Simulated assay, not measured.
Amino acid sequence: MIYQVGDKITTKKKHVCGSNTWVIIRTGADIKIKCAGCAREVMIPKYELDKKVKPET
């Protein structure tokens, strides 16, 4: 999957705050995402994020 800065993604599991929507902040080998619910920022390798993102319909 290709990610662009500013894209909104939905994960399969919810974050601790209850939201499953994230915003892409930075791309590269590691991708930085920000929770739309609580504004927590997380760095995650691209291959792990690909597994956790819900497929678009």
Results as ranks from 00 to 15, higher is better:
43 M>T: 05
37 G>I: 13
14 K>W: 08
11 T>M: 05
10 T>S: 03
46 K>Q: 13
29 A>P: 00
47 Y>P: 04
33 I>T: 11
38 C>I: 06
57 T>S: 09
4 Q>G: 01
30 D>L: 06
9 I>H: 02
57 T>H: 07
6 G>A: 03
27 T>S: 04
21 T>P: 00
15 H>F: 14
4 Q>E: 03
31 I>C: 07
8 K>A: 04
53 V>M: 07
28 G>H: 10
3 Y>H: 07
33 I>N: 05
8 K>Q: 11
31 I>K: 13
54 K>H: 09
47 Y>I: 13
24 I>C: 01
20 N>M: 06
26 R>D: 11
10 T>V: 08
43 M>E: 05
3 Y>D: 06
33 I>F: 06
56 E>D: 12
33 I>M: 14
9 I>D: 03
50 D>G: 04
29 A>G: 11
41 E>S: 13
33 I>K: 15
19 S>M: 08
38 C>R: 12
44 I>M: 03
37 G>L: 11
22 W>A: 02
6 G>V: 00
24 I>T: 00
12 K>V: 10
14 K>N: 10
12 K>Q: 12
20 N>L: 03
41 E>G: 10
20 N>S: 10
51 K>Q: 15
45 P>C: 04
7 D>N: 05
51 K>H: 11
51 K>W: 09
3 Y>I: 05
56 E>G: 06
36 A>C: 15
17 C>F: 13
46 K>R: 14
46 K>A: 12
44 I>T: 09
36 A>H: 09
56 E>Q: 14
24 I>D: 00
41 E>M: 13
49 L>K: 10
5 V>M: 00
24 I>E: 00
2 I>K: 15
42 V>P: 00
25 I>R: 15
30 D>P: 00
43 M>A: 09
14 K>C: 07
52 K>E: 13
9 I>G: 04
46 K>C: 03
26 R>M: 07
45 P>Y: 01
8 K>Y: 12
34 K>A: 05
36 A>V: 12
54 K>L: 13
35 C>K: 06
52 K>L: 13
8 K>S: 12
9 I>V: 07
54 K>W: 08
27 T>W: 01
46 K>L: 09
51 K>F: 08
15 H>W: 14
20 N>P: 05
23 V>H: 00
52 K>V: 01
42 V>Y: 02
51 K>S: 06
40 R>L: 12
22 W>R: 01
1 M>L: 08
29 A>I: 12
3 Y>F: 15
31 I>W: 04
26 R>Y: 11
57 T>D: 11
34 K>W: 01
57 T>K: 13
17 C>N: 04
34 K>G: 03
17 C>T: 03
35 C>T: 06
16 V>Q: 09
23 V>M: 05
54 K>R: 10
22 W>D: 03
44 I>R: 01
20 N>R: 07
39 A>G: 01
37 G>P: 05
8 K>P: 00
52 K>I: 04
9 I>R: 01
49 L>Y: 06
4 Q>P: 00
20 N>F: 04
50 D>H: 11
45 P>D: 13
4 Q>H: 04
11 T>Y: 03
43 M>N: 10
23 V>L: 10
4 Q>M: 05
2 I>P: 14
36 A>W: 02
15 H>G: 01
24 I>W: 10
44 I>Y: 01
21 T>R: 09
46 K>M: 07
10 T>Y: 02
36 A>P: 00
48 E>A: 14
8 K>R: 06
45 P>Q: 06
33 I>W: 05
26 R>V: 10
54 K>T: 13
47 Y>R: 15
37 G>Y: 14
